[in-house]
């Protein structure tokens, strides 16, 4: 077992891990941050997406040891300081961008990562950016719409006749 220390959602945390301990297991099991989900074992579904040093990564495809010293943000750290939801989270609720909620944390992490570098993405850019995040419920319609709306774009005419 090796000790790792990292900053998770602004707090310094540490714990003993094995070499094979995945970052997602460290977050879910040791830190009890169960908002990060595991939906596959081939690194495709994106339910486990978190930010490591500001970059979008799949926490199921990174060892906890590799995040030693890193700054990690999970869905639990995405709200506003006062505990309310961020504009992006609120937009998902406003536009019904989630159903069962299982892929949702990954979607929020991926979308926020996109908006950081591309504040007003087009529909095509959003769809391309979500290539590594699978949702089985929404058909993506309202996810894409919610992200467009969160970036300040007018979505009232989407798919209108």
């Amino acid at each position: 077992m090796t000790k790792v220390t990292m900053t998770v959602n602004g707090k310094s945390v540490s714990g003993e891990v094995e070499g094979r301990t995945l970052l997602v297991d460290f977050l879910r099991d040791a830190q009890r941050l169960t908002g990060t989900h595991v939906g596959c074992d081939t690194s495709q579904c994106g339910a486990c997406t978190v930010h490591v040093d500001g970059l979008q990564v799949k926490s199921c495809t990174m060892f906890a040891l590799e995040a030693d010293g890193a700054t990690v943000t999970t869905i639990e750290g995405m709200g506003n300081a006062d505990g309310t939801m961020s504009a992006l989270q609120a937009s998902f609720q406003e536009h019904h961008g989630l159903q069962c909620g299982f892929c949702t944390p990954g979607m929020i992490m991926a979308a926020s990562s996109l908006l950081k570098v591309n504040p007003k993405p087009t529909e095509a850019e959003i769809r391309h950016h979500l290539e590594g995040n699978i949702c089985r419920c929404t058909g993506y319609h309202n996810i894409v719409k919610a992200i467009m709306a969160a970036s300040g774009q007018d979505v009232s005419a989407i798919a209108a006749e």
Partner: peptide
């Protein structure tokens, strides 16, 4: 939605 969007769902 609030619990799902903030990581507070209980699966």
């Amino acid at each position: 939605d609030v619990r799902f969007l903030t990581g507070k769902g209980q699966y």
